[in-house]
């Protein structure tokens, strides 16, 4: 189960990189980055998964005394929660910058922006 999730995550990262490197349209590149971002999150969550255990929430099904033997690793989940929020912020920033670029140059093609190219 965790292998399936992890493989999917790695494949999503590769798809995202491929999209970001081959597309010329900046909006498509941003979408490719979010796909890669999702892949990274999926891999991180899969690392914390353990077979036959349950979510790290203490209730009637997971008594406090047995918690250490019944729950999966909570730390990757906390990390991914942070990563998702930061990912949203990065995407919003990229979109705002693209809007600005489009307003100044009237083009979404990355090959028209050569100022920083070497």
């Amino acid at each position: 189960m965790s292998y399936i999730a992890m493989t999917t995550g790695f494949i999503l990262i590769l798809i995202g990189f491929y999209g970001a490197l081959t597309n010329r349209n900046i909006l498509r590149m941003i979408i490719a980055f979010t796909v890669a971002n999702t892949g990274v999150n999926l891999v991180l969550v899969a690392v914390g998964y353990m077979r036959g255990r349950t979510a790290p929430i203490l209730d009637a099904a997971v008594p406090v005394t047995e918690a250490a033997a019944r729950i999966i690793d909570p730390i990757p989940q906390a990390l991914v929660l942070t990563a998702i929020v930061i990912g949203v912020g990065v995407t919003a920033l990229m979109l705002a910058f693209v809007y600005k670029l489009y307003a100044t140059r009237g083009s979404l093609d990355i090959s028209n922006y050569t100022e920083l190219k070497w």
Binding site: M50, P56, I57, L58, D59, V64, A67, A68, I71, D73, P74, I75, Q77, A78, L81
Partner: peptide, 22 residues
Amino acid sequence: LNLTARYYAEHTAQDIGAANIV
């Protein structure tokens, strides 16, 4: 669970009192 996760699993209930460890 590794060492850190085990600490959180065992101490959250007494120290913090939150049911959701995350």
